[in-house]
Simulated assay, not measured.
Amino acid sequence: MLAAGGHLDVEELTAAARERLGTLTSQAVYEMLRHFLETGLVTKFERPGWPAVFELTGLPHQHAMCVNCGRVQNVPHVAPVPPTNDLRDWQVNDADIVFKGLCPNCRAS
């Protein structure tokens, strides 16, 4: 389901997988996602006020999120280099930027 692209939450993943496989429990989907996260196959994007979404791990990117409907889109953008003066003695491994606003569908309505 994730190989088709996009960002899916657990309920969307479960419903799509049930259409293809027949019976499938939400618990089985949670267990598969936990395993995929542990092995680095998928990544999880937390959406404040919305269920988290999952996607296949790929090239580094940032995200845009619609504050109205929760839609998430990948943005091919390199995260900034953290300010070293403000983070002395820190080992920073990554940074995330989330662009927030209205998606084209929500803007049109």
Score class of each variant (00 low, 15 high):
Gly40Pro: 02
Glu19Lys: 14
Ala28Asn: 06
Gly58Pro: 01
Asp86Gly: 13
Val67Ser: 14
Thr23Lys: 13
Glu38Ser: 12
Gln73Met: 08
Thr25Asn: 03
Pro60Ser: 07
Thr39Cys: 08
Val75Arg: 02
Cys69Ile: 13
Thr25Phe: 06
Phe54Ser: 01
Arg34Ser: 10
Thr57Met: 00
Pro51Glu: 10
Leu41Pro: 01
Tyr30Arg: 14
Asn93Pro: 00
Gln91Gly: 03
Ser26Lys: 10
Cys66Phe: 05
Gly22Ser: 12
Arg20Asn: 11
Gln62Gly: 06
Asn93Phe: 13
His77Leu: 06
Val92Phe: 09
Pro48Thr: 03
Val72Leu: 00
Ala16Lys: 03
Trp90Asn: 09
Trp90Phe: 15
Trp90Glu: 11
Pro82Phe: 15
Val81Ala: 13
His61Arg: 06
Pro76Cys: 06
Asp89Asn: 15
His77Met: 13
Val29Met: 03
Pro51His: 00
Asp96Cys: 04
Glu12Leu: 09
Val75Cys: 14
Ser26His: 08
Leu59Tyr: 02
Val67Trp: 08
Asp94Leu: 08
Glu31Lys: 15
Arg34Ile: 00
Pro60Asp: 10
Ala64Tyr: 01
Asn74Asp: 12
Asp94Arg: 14
Gly22Asp: 10
Thr57His: 01
Glu46Ile: 09
Leu13Gly: 00
Phe54His: 03
Gln62Arg: 05
Trp90Pro: 03
His77Pro: 02
Thr14Met: 07
Thr43Arg: 01
Leu24Lys: 00
Met65Leu: 05
Pro82Asp: 11
Pro48Trp: 05
Asn68Gln: 12
Gln73Lys: 11
Val81Gly: 11
Ser26Val: 11
Cys69Gln: 12
Thr43Ser: 03
Glu19Ser: 13
Thr43Ala: 03
Trp50Thr: 05
Gly40Cys: 07
His61Trp: 09
Val78Ala: 15
Val42Ser: 00
Asn85Trp: 15
Asp86Ile: 09
Leu41Asn: 05
Met32Cys: 02
Pro80Arg: 12
